[in-house]
Design a protein around this nucleic acid. Structure first.
Lengths: 236, 236
DNA sequence: ATTAGTTTGAGTCAAGTTGACTATAACTAG
DNA sequence: CTAGTTATAGTCAACTTGACTCAAACTAAT
């Protein structure tokens, strides 16, 4: 370990250190509108640099775990959550990301289902924030979150990722609400439903969602595997 | 540095080491058909592990260069080339990628123009191979090349990347040949040309390519920036 | 000079997709 | 029983895509 007071020659001599961080997205009802919105958990820095500021959950890579396992553990340690989707985002390795020491961060992004997200740990030093109202984060973490959001929007348009923000059963309107929250624009209900019904990975169940105030919508299920990055390729 | 004979306890104690590698694509005429085909340069391993096998160009990350700079230097050192396109591919960090030591490799992929590629260094220990006929490579490099190919095909379909495999001026038929080489299927010339003419980043020049055996085709130019990953976002 | 061969480049047509919109069905709250 | 609201189906015009035809422009061979 290197202290934050490492001088220049120490810094030059040190090999770049390697860390894993994760951007964790979940849907929570907005405080104002009640509609689902994107939220993510951050942890407060308890030491320099950036002491007191909020940052992405992360930590060093231990020698006996893969990158994805490290991200997964990291997520469980800080929030108590198990992700329903986990993918590598990017390796950030700029020279001046941390003032004290050269750090290369391999960042993952994750989606968790709302049932899980509801029972997530929250404390003095772990808190959930709306993804569009984060304030200034430590290091380059604002840029990282921006990129993760861009990726999420992209994957969403591509098609396969929305369901991992929902539970096992969902209505087509709920899927549309996910799209509307993430893309931040309204979508035509009828046209959206037509597209979803055309994708074979969405299976109609016999069930209906009861207890609503209006006509009960049919429940659907997602059948289909995510993976296309190297770590997920072998599992069909 | 750790020797390949490091014992188990040394291995457990060592922090994972960090390396940069690059998958470099260029177009060269096929020996048989003469049509453009994808080729990439590999370097021969001169020490264990995998001594004698071919591997992707790569090396350690030095403390004073960014990840992208390291990939770029690495490319220049082994092949003498400057890339016209360079993007991060993935960070590979499986536990058993190297038998002797835990290595995390941040891999970039690059495209070089054929004029450059023609004067690339080639030697006993640096040689170009057809991307579809590589044989067994060192480490997990076959999987890495497969993933890079998958990414290339994807980006191609997305639209912006084909021109970086060509020179500054090109005919629409040359662009089609790039697509045919990378996607490995024939495309209808008339429909393909219609699509290209609809993309605003392709600009008609007044020039024609002379010296062909048939009707001289018009020359075009690509105007448009690549970047969408974090390292290239600020440059508009 | 003429013709055959080849590639460029424009256009047509049917099939499929998308966005805007209308209409009906099925439920709840009063 | 009625008004309000959401679910779900359907229509129609605009646009996109793939298969195909055809003329234009050049070279090479007769």
């Amino acid at each position: 370990m290197f202290s934050s007071s490492a001088n220049v020659s120490e810094r030059r001599a040190a090999p770049p250190s390697l860390a894993i961080s994760t951007v964790i997205f979940a849907l929570r009802p907005s405080a104002t509108s009640g509609r689902p919105t994107l939220w993510l958990p951050l942890v407060r820095r308890i030491r320099e640099p950036f002491k007191g500021l909020w940052a992405l959950p992360g930590g060093p890579l231990s020698h006996d775990e893969s990158l994805q396992d490290a991200a997964s553990r990291n997520l469980r340690d800080t929030t108590g959550l198990a992700p329903s989707y986990l993918e590598q985002l990017y390796a950030f390795g700029g020279l001046h990301r941390s003032p004290s020491q050269r750090v290369v961060s391999i960042v993952y992004w994750a989606l968790v289902q709302p049932t899980e997200a509801a029972l997530a740990d929250e404390s003095e030093n772990v808190r959930w924030f709306r993804a569009d109202r984060l304030g200034d984060l430590a290091f380059d973490h604002n840029a990282i979150v921006d990129y993760a959001l861009w990726r999420l929007r992209n994957k969403l348009a591509y098609g396969s990722v929305a369901y991992h923000l929902l539970g096992e059963y969902f209505t087509l309107a709920q899927v549309r609400e996910v799209y509307e929250a993430v893309l931040d624009r309204q979508l035509d209900p009828a046209n959206f439903r037509r597209q979803l019904k055309a994708t074979p990975e969405i299976e109609e169940t016999g069930e209906y969602l009861q207890g609503g105030k209006h006509r009960p919508p049919r429940l659907y299920r997602y059948t289909g595997r995510p993976g296309l990055d190297p770590d997920n390729r072998s599992t069909p």
